[in-house]
Amino acid sequence: MEFRGEGNNGLSKVAVRNNPQEKSNISRRRFISLSLGLAAGVLFPSFKSPLSASGNQVAPTFPQFFFTQIKYQGGQWDPNPQLLDSLMEELELRTSIRGMKERRLITLSDPDLFFCPLLYMAGKDEFDPFTPKEREILGRFLTYGGFLLADDTMGAKGFGFDKSFRREMNQIFPGQELKRLPSDHSVYRSFYLIETLGGRQKVNPYLEGITLDQWTPVIYSQNDLSGAWARDRFGKWIHPCVPGGEPQRASAFKAGINIIVYSLASDYKKDLVHHPFIKRRLNL
């Protein structure tokens, strides 16, 4: 009941839908999906319902995206273990991407790291330096197309996770610093048009990253994104978002969706065909 007052906000609906006490909203979502499907069916009357083609049969069977979290030595590698359920539901509800509900855990020396679409690294405290081999593997993965999302859940600049993470990035990419991503970066436009960054806390209203050529293989947030996504098994948010409340959480979900889409579609939104639409919507 905590979010009911948010009215038309879609994210609130997700939260409410997952609250076992509000089961009637599940049928509402299905109703909306079905309505859209039927609407599409009207547009393409001679074909099968798109819902039957992509929604009910194939999509759930073969997820194409999975979240892989890095287990590292020292510090606290898993500050928000329940980060994924709500994000994956949101991903599936809003986008065409089929994501696995379960996260995978990996160490940096695991060769399967190269097959992960998105490496996620979170933490609160300082952690042990990576071994040279781990740095070499992570550097090779990121240099040749891999992707890493880092999430500082403490949010103290120059302390804790932030201090250790910047140290490791300096070792892996000497001469390349984590820099504030410009407002026209593809990650702010890959699905939603984002102007400010949410999270459990609001340390930075922006993302930082390391960009190599046209690709940003490392994206870093100090706003504790996973804290905003985390939900307990009863469907309640584990942490309140301060100071912005639920709009700040909604913004964190939008950022999560955008980061996932960016990890799979790269700078697709930089293609010229998108420019006039985006400029018009942003009143540029």
């Binding site: 906000n9 879609g10 994210l11 609906k13 979502r29 909306i32 999906s33 859209l36 499907g37 609407a39 599409a40 798109p50 819902l51 992509s54 929604g55 509800l93 809003r94 986008t95 065409s96 436009r189 890959s190 699905f191 939603y192 048009l193 939008k254 939104k269 998108h274 639409f277 985006i278 919507r281 942003l282």
Partner: peptide
């Protein structure tokens, strides 16, 4: 896809 639900107005979509 047509099965997905969008939760923001057009101005906030890319």
């Amino acid at each position: 896809t047509p099965a997905n639900i969008i939760n923001v107005p057009l101005q906030e979509q890319s």
